[in-house]
Amino acid sequence: MPTFSSPTPTLASEIGYALHQILILRPTHPLTEIFSYVSDEGTVARTQLSEHMATWSAQLRHPLPTTRIFLNKEHTKRLLLQRGTAYALLGSPEQARQDLHALLQHSGTTTRQLEGLACLVLAVLATEQERYPDALPLWKQARAWLHPQEYDHLALTWYYTKVLVQLNHLRTAYRVLTEILSPTTPGLRLPRQKERAEAYAELFSQRGGVCSLLQYHQEAIEDLNAAIELHPTCARLFSIRGLLHAKRQHWQAAYNDLWRALHAMPEDQALADCLFVVMQRLGTQLAVPTTTPAMHTRRGGTRRA
């Protein structure tokens, strides 16, 4: 059984969460068994997954000459995909890359599913390690090889766009997001916004950030308005819109949003600092909201602003 002397739970859980969001798993999917040991939050049942890895490793090391299944190239690729993905989920990225790149070196015949899944896992791994130049071509290849029914379009778009933004490919990021938020591609089946409100809210927020970087300030505000309409209880969206208002020197609107966000996230010091700057800009003209939220003191009491 393989051992992992220096696991990185944070990286592993981030990879698990991302793949759990992106993949659409069916009973016959090659990664279904693996993700039965991964929670929705990305937590991995390490002992059970390690036990399965021992079996896959034994099959890859000692194929029986009398058993045709081990001589089948597709089966070998499937084992490499499973073990490589398990390595990634257990916090061993270099071993994961070794297996997944070995899979990609086998030429495909009838299907590109396994190669596409290998590229997807490698793309997520590179993204979570902030190796964005490595991640970008892997995301592109995964999108090209995987069938649209094999992945969640909203989740994959969010991660792919994150890489584009980090590499400053802003216009491409804007186009990719717009294809999802205002689809014009025939046959592209996307869930309705009401069915996936929080996911769409994240994409509107993401495009709002891209618009701001492109100096499309009004469009940025409109996208955050749409995001908040879909997910009105998310304080983070109010904080983003507040920062966009502050960027345009709309101090009262910025104050209203940042105040509301800080009430929900009182430990966010950066947010508190931004609100303080906005209050300075407002000066004596500060208009306190009609409903003034209670702010928690460090000793657990409350005070009014």
Score class of each variant (00 low, 15 high):
residue 236 R to F: 03
residue 231 H to W: 11
residue 262 L to N: 11
residue 223 D to E: 00
residue 253 A to H: 11
residue 233 T to N: 10
residue 234 C to T: 06
residue 233 T to M: 06
residue 257 D to R: 01
residue 221 I to N: 07
residue 247 K to V: 00
residue 245 H to A: 03
residue 216 Y to M: 12
residue 236 R to M: 10
residue 229 E to S: 13
residue 225 N to Q: 10
residue 241 R to Y: 01
residue 215 Q to C: 09
residue 220 A to K: 09
residue 223 D to M: 07
residue 263 H to N: 06
residue 254 A to Y: 02
residue 229 E to N: 14
residue 255 Y to F: 14
residue 244 L to T: 14
residue 224 L to W: 04
residue 244 L to C: 10
residue 249 Q to P: 14
residue 228 I to K: 08
residue 262 L to C: 12
residue 240 I to F: 09
residue 262 L to Y: 10
residue 235 A to H: 08
residue 234 C to I: 02
residue 256 N to F: 00
residue 216 Y to C: 12
residue 228 I to C: 03
residue 258 L to S: 04
residue 225 N to R: 11
residue 263 H to R: 09
residue 228 I to Q: 12
residue 264 A to Y: 11
residue 238 F to H: 15
residue 245 H to D: 03
residue 245 H to S: 00
residue 248 R to S: 08
residue 222 E to W: 06
residue 247 K to D: 04
residue 254 A to L: 00
residue 250 H to M: 08
residue 247 K to T: 06
residue 237 L to F: 08
residue 260 R to E: 05
residue 240 I to K: 12
residue 232 P to M: 03
residue 224 L to K: 07
residue 250 H to I: 00
residue 249 Q to M: 07
residue 251 W to M: 01
residue 236 R to V: 10
residue 217 H to E: 11
residue 223 D to Y: 10
residue 261 A to W: 07
residue 242 G to F: 04
residue 257 D to N: 07
residue 225 N to D: 13
residue 222 E to N: 15
residue 233 T to R: 03
residue 218 Q to Y: 10
residue 238 F to R: 15
residue 220 A to E: 06
residue 233 T to V: 09
residue 264 A to S: 14
residue 217 H to S: 11
residue 232 P to C: 06
residue 223 D to N: 14
residue 252 Q to S: 07
residue 238 F to E: 06
residue 251 W to G: 03
residue 216 Y to V: 03
residue 235 A to M: 04
residue 225 N to L: 03
residue 253 A to K: 13
residue 263 H to S: 11
residue 215 Q to N: 15
residue 227 A to K: 07
residue 221 I to M: 03
residue 262 L to M: 08
residue 263 H to D: 11
residue 245 H to R: 03
residue 232 P to N: 03
residue 220 A to H: 09
residue 250 H to P: 09
residue 251 W to V: 00
residue 221 I to V: 15
residue 240 I to M: 12
residue 244 L to D: 08
residue 231 H to D: 15
residue 259 W to Q: 13
residue 228 I to N: 10
residue 221 I to C: 01
residue 236 R to D: 10
residue 224 L to T: 11
residue 218 Q to G: 04
residue 244 L to P: 02
residue 263 H to M: 01
residue 232 P to I: 01
residue 257 D to S: 01
residue 240 I to Q: 12
residue 229 E to R: 15
residue 255 Y to N: 09
residue 243 L to S: 14
residue 242 G to P: 13
residue 231 H to P: 05
residue 230 L to Q: 04
residue 247 K to F: 01
residue 228 I to A: 07
